[in-house]
Design a protein around this nucleic acid. Structure first.
Lengths: 216, 216
DNA sequence: TAGCTAATACTCCATTTGGTGTATTAGGCT
DNA sequence: AGCCTAATACACCAAATGGAGTATTAGCTA
C-alpha cells in the first residue's frame, strides 16, 4: 500500500490526479492540498505518507522550499516534483532540495502510475528533458580536470606544490623537505611561472578551479 | 530518419536490437558492431550516425572509453548506454564521458523505441534506478553550502571579503574602497578571526570548500 | 547616559612573500 | 664533450602579511 498526498494549486489537476490514483488498488490518497502549508502543518498525515506529488509553482511556500522542509523532518518521504516546464534551475534546485523525481504534469496516466511505482523500487522517475539538464549539469561540474602533468612539473616541484596547497610557509616546507627556504622559494616561483600565476592566492584558486587537488 | 549503430558483444542481444529497430520506418541501422574498435575505425559510418546504442561491458575498449573517444570527434552523436546493472560509478563515468542516456538492456521494446525517439527531441532517457544514482551524486556535490551570513560578517567585512577573494593586496583594496590599508588589514584580521583561519591560503581554501563564493 | 559595535586610522614589529640575479653540481642526451 | 635541465643555495631588495596595540567617531540600544 502506497500512501500518497497531492499538493497542487490547480483544482482541475488536483482532482484529476486524485481520480487517476484512486483507480489503483494499492494506492491510497491520504489528502489533497492546494498549498504546501496545508501539508506541512498536518503532522498526522505526514507521518503516514510515503509519496508526495508536489507541484513546483505554488502560492506561498513554493514546491522546492516545501520539499526541503519536508525532507528535513521526514527524510523517508519520496517527493515527486510536478511541473509543466523543465527549467534547468528548478530541476537542479529541486534535486538539491531532496526531490526523488521530476516529471511533467502532462505525462500519460499509465506513465504516472509506473513512475510512482518505480519510487517504491528505489528508483527516481525523471522525464527525458529533465534528465538531459541533469546530465549536462553533472558533466559541467566535472569538466575541469587537469593534472599537474599538464604543467610539466618536475618531481621536486610536485613536492613543493603539495606543500603550498597544505598552506606551508617557505620556511616550513624547507624544513619538511630538508632544503633551504631559498630553494623552496625558487621551486615555488618556477611553479608559478608554469601555472602562470604570481601569488599564493592565485595559485590556490587555480589549483582548486582546475581540480588539481585530485592529484594529491 | 534516425541513423543508428549498435555496439554490443552478445550476438543475441545485437541481433535482437537490430530486429527491433528495423521494424521502425524512421530508423535505419547503419551497422552492428561486436566491439567498439569496429565502430571507431569506421569513419564513414560515424559521419552518418545520429545515435549509438553502446554496451558498457565490451571486450577491448569498453563502452565508457569508447563514448569519450567518439564524443571527442563527433560531439553531435547521441550515445545511449546499455547495461544490465545500474552501478553508481559506471553511471557517473558514462555521463562524464558524454553519454546522452542510460537504459537497461531488458527495457520493454516499446520503451526502447520511445527512448531513442526522446533523444531526437533533445531528451535524455534514463532508467529510474540510474536516475536515482545521478540525483544522489548531484545532491552530494552541492551539500556544502554556507553563506558569509553564517559567520556574521558586517557589511564592510563583506566588501573586504570579496576583495580578498579577488586577490587584491591590502594596498589595492584600500584604494578600491577609499580607506587606509591599515584599515583594510584590520577588517581582514577580523574576518580571519570569524572564519577561524590565519592566512590568505587558509581563507581561500575555506571559502571555496564551503562554496562561500556563491554569495559573491 | 552608558555601553557596545562598527568603521576608521595610525604605530610598532617580525616574518613572509615575490622577484631578480649569480653560482654549482649531477645526470641525461646528442 | 657540450648542452640542457633539475636541484640546490646564497644574495639583494621591496612589498606584503600577520599580529598586537591605541585611539576616535558614529550609531544604536537599554
Amino acid at each position: 500500500m502506497i500512501n500518497l498526498v497531492i499538493v497542487e494549486d490547480s483544482i482541475d489537476a488536483r482532482e484529476g490526479f486524485k481520480y487517476l490514483l484512486k483507480l489503483e488498488k494499492d494506492f491510497r490518497v491520504l489528502k489533497t492540498c492546494e498549498s504546501a502549508e496545508e501539508l506541512i502543518s498536518d503532522k498526522e498525515v505526514l507521518r503516514l505518507t510515503n509519496v508526495v506529488l508536489m507541484d513546483i509553482e505554488l502560492p506561498g511556500i513554493n514546491g522546492i522550499k516545501a520539499t526541503r522542509m519536508i525532507k528535513a523532518e521526514y527524510p523517508d518521504i519520496d517527493i515527486l516534483m510536478l511541473t509543466i516546464f523543465e527549467e534547468h534551475d528548478k530541476i537542479v534546485k529541486a534535486v538539491q532540495a531532496g526531490a526523488s523525481g521530476y516529471i511533467l504534469k502532462n505525462s500519460a496516466p499509465g506513465d504516472l502510475v509506473n513512475q510512482i511505482r518505480s519510487l517504491s523500487n528505489g528508483g527516481s522517475p525523471i522525464s527525458p528533458g529533465a534528465a538531459r539538464k541533469l546530465l549536462d549539469e553533472l558533466r559541467q561540474k566535472e569538466q575541469r580536470n587537469k593534472t599537474p602533468d599538464d604543467y610539466n612539473l618536475t618531481p621536486r616541484e610536485i613536492d613543493i606544490f603539495k606543500a603550498i596547497v597544505e598552506g606551508y610557509t617557505y620556511k616550513e616546507m624547507a624544513e619538511e623537505l630538508n632544503i633551504a627556504s631559498s630553494t623552496a622559494k625558487k621551486h615555488i616561483l618556477h611553479i608559478y611561472r608554469k601555472l602562470n600565476v604570481s601569488s599564493k592566492v592565485e595559485f590556490i584558486k587555480k589549483v582548486i578551479d582546475e581540480n588539481l587537488t585530485d592529484y594529491i
